[in-house]
Design a protein around this nucleic acid. Structure first.
Lengths: 196, 196
DNA sequence: GTCTATAGATTGATAGAC
DNA sequence: GTCTATCAATCTATAGAC
């Protein structure tokens, strides 16, 4: 077998540690300890710490694309697809209450660090943004699609941030319900003007 | 003059640097450089880095209380007070687009660091939360006051996070308008059930 | 109250044996 | 491909002169 396994293990451990403790705060020693290799062996697979971050972001982008494709294949109804997005808050509630949203917290940290990979990390947001906008367009809300996508992304981010500060399943459940109600009203509004 | 001036300068510089680059990423050397004192002189005023963080949080708590008192004194209308809160997003748009919300980003970072001051930092959220809830109660929405406060806090946090990732004045303006509309609908709903 | 000098630990990164 | 040994830089923190 090639070195793919070790490299994948490094990226996997880094992904988890960056999420849980932040990129800057995670040291090579931390990652090496998790994978159980020596620090020296590291540089056979990656030239620098930033290269690991790049790989982690690439992995997250690929995983996110796969998740969005999965939702797209799971239902023909754009509203149902959007509800899949909204429900991440409940599916991942445990992790979010402990570590926040992996997309939002990485984006915020890299912004503060003024890190070169900041734009790449924001690509994770863009992935959700364009996917959501496409679903809204399919619902007949083409003119407002991006605006609605940004609105829903913001709502989701805000709930994640506050759940991280004040873990409370009832709060999450209520906010998710409110987002679903909002979605229904959007669709109802689209049908009224759709016949024009 | 006592040492108050230097100490205040340290807290002031730390406050700014913690906000701009994060707590963990800001070193004593960074703060010392900003205040233009030597690193050694530091420990005459603070025993450890964590003590500076505590002072920064205390300062932010005091400043936030003063701001909330100011809004309370500026208007007798709770709705107008709440709009003062919503409008921070526009007032501080420049800083938010660069560094995010000072409350949310500190809360997220300390959560990842599993830092002892995490609870104190979340007190900043609590300050807004209870203040907003009181305003909603004054509007006749006593039963849902905390829920509405959390909802508005979440909306605000989400807009801040996304503005940090995608700076766009039009997005902020539109979301602020939506929040004000939402507030008006809350008040209209309260008046309907208020006569009961 | 402020400084210089320095300790002791940890960081990211390199060199070279196996 | 993995290891040990090590470097240079940086970090928090301390000691002691002025």
């Amino acid at each position: 077998m090639s070195d793919k396994s070790t490299r994948a293990q490094i990226v996997d451990a880094a992904d988890r540690l960056f999420y849980r403790h932040g990129f800057d705060h995670t040291s090579f020693a931390d990652i090496a300890g998790a994978v159980k290799i020596s620090r020296g062996n590291f540089y056979h697979h990656f030239k620098a710490k930033d290269d690991i971050l790049d790989s982690v972001i690439e992995t997250r982008l690929a995983n996110t694309r796969a998740m969005l494709d999965g939702w797209e294949n799971a239902s023909d109804d754009p509203a149902e697809r959007i509800r899949s997005f909204i429900n991440i808050l409940i599916m991942n509630e445990d992790k979010i209450s402990k570590y926040g949203c992996p997309v939002g917290t990485l984006s915020s940290e890299l912004a503060k660090l003024n890190h070169a990979a900041r734009t790449d990390a924001n690509g994770l947001f863009t992935l959700f943004r364009t996917w959501l906008a496409r679903q809204f367009a399919l619902l007949g809300l083409k003119d407002d699609a991006d605006r609605l996508a940004m609105h829903l992304l913001a709502r989701s981010q805000g709930v994640a941030t506050l759940t991280n500060a004040f873990p409370d399943p009832a709060f999450v459940r209520h906010e998710v319900e409110q987002m679903c109600d909002w979605l229904d009203r959007c669709i109802a509004g689209a049908k009224h003007t759709g016949g024009k």
